[in-house]
Design a protein around this nucleic acid. Structure first.
Lengths: 223, 223
DNA sequence: TAGGATTCCTAACACTGTTAGCCCCCGAAC
DNA sequence: GTTCGGGGGCTAACAGTGTTAGGAATCCTA
């Protein structure tokens, strides 16, 4: 038989989860701006101040949502990272990113399209632990690039693995970001963003790998 | 001797220009959100409602600023488009975009990082003439891609010139956009964005052109 | 059942973009 | 020079926003 204290705790946790769920659909439907604290409170069935007993402020609530989605992205990237062939692995990770962006536009906007003031970013960083999902996403990408360099599937470039990791990230990011911002503009004859984004990632990887002997050859040389 | 009417008109035009100039520095310093209409009015030296006699609303003011900066970007892209060699031309245009983004971060944020609601985008589109600088930027990029396809410097891909143009745009956009959004985050060991962005553009162009005979060879074949 | 703590709501504050209404001042006509 | 007209610009207010203070109601404990 749980103590009343525990029961209360659980009730609070349940409501906290309900808030996050409601916030997610609200952000998805009305965007970050349109999802106001009062509307969120209405949807949850309480008053606005209650939200502040669960989250420090609106930015904090957004951060929690981001963290949840970063965990999802991390899962997808971990799955992609299981591929053996270094280039396939990188391609898979980029595609996971693209897929994530297209399937969760609101979360993508929150994580990668919303400019936070630098001070805020530093605060977020201060609250991060070493196994933060967002950090782990970059770490796993960087590690895969490093492995590709090691196995000579990519050429060494000035800037080391970070430069290539960030370039690859940019490749996956660029097209879907453009589409997310300007995709509704009828003045550009937009092509399907998934295909275009993949096209760019493939071209970049092909461009890099063309400057260096293929992995197969390297292997043969080693053998 | 100008009529009093004309004098008034000129005074109004002058203030309109002053408002735009003040808005530009204000947006650059405090971001889109932090630049409020009242602060802008203070800086100009009038009250907030006066701004509404020059611009329909805040979004309208932003659009005017965007248009000015789009004209700048168009100039840079026109300059880059003078290159003869198709790939150099595309590379130059991508670099012009990158340079523009890095030199005018606030304007870049306005034009390519700020999500407008779709309805707003459609309104903007409705107000555009055929020689709108933003449209012209895309048109010139697309035309350069088309020329590169024509001269077999790029391979034909499903999606036509639009797909490739958008992919190239994404390549130039991706890295600088990421940097603009997350560049202040201390958790990622950022490499200089200019170099990384160029690296990506070069790799993508190399990747595409590697799949097709080089321009020189094509020329030789023709001859 | 009385006490005490906790939880939650109403009301308010400091902002935001935006608009209504009034006043004043400048230019023009007599 | 005086008076009139009208447009420009101001103050004040409205409907929102995120956020907080204070009191009421509720529920568990003694």
């Amino acid at each position: 038989m749980p103590s009343t204290h525990a029961i209360r705790q659980r009730r609070l946790a349940a409501r906290r989860a309900r808030i996050l769920a409601a916030a997610r659909t609200l952000f998805a439907r009305h965007g970050v701006e349109g999802a106001t604290m009062r509307r969120l409170a209405d949807k949850v069935g309480c008053s606005a101040p209650v939200l502040y007993s669960h989250f420090a402020d609106k930015a904090d609530l957004l951060r929690q949502l981001c963290a949840e989605d970063a965990a999802d992205l991390l899962l997808a990237m971990r799955r992609a990272a299981r591929a053996d062939e270094p280039l396939a692995r990188l391609r898979g990770m980029a595609r996971a990113y693209i897929e994530h962006a297209l399937r969760r536009p609101a979360q993508f906007q929150l994580m990668f399209l919303t400019p936070f003031p630098p001070e805020e970013l530093r605060r977020i960083s201060a609250g991060r632990t070493k196994d933060d999902p967002a950090l782990a996403c970059y770490a796993i990408l960087r590690e895969s690039v490093r492995a590709a360099l090691e196995r000579r599937a990519l050429p060494r470039r000035p800037g080391g693995p970070d430069a290539l990791a960030q370039a690859l990230w940019g490749a996956a990011h660029g097209v879907v970001a453009l589409h997310a911002i300007l995709g509704a503009s009828p003045d550009v004859p937009w092509r399907p963003s998934r295909a275009v984004a993949r096209e760019l990632v493939d071209a970049a990887l092909a461009g890099w790998s063309a400057r260096e002997p293929r992995r197969a050859r390297t292997k043969a040389r080693r053998a």
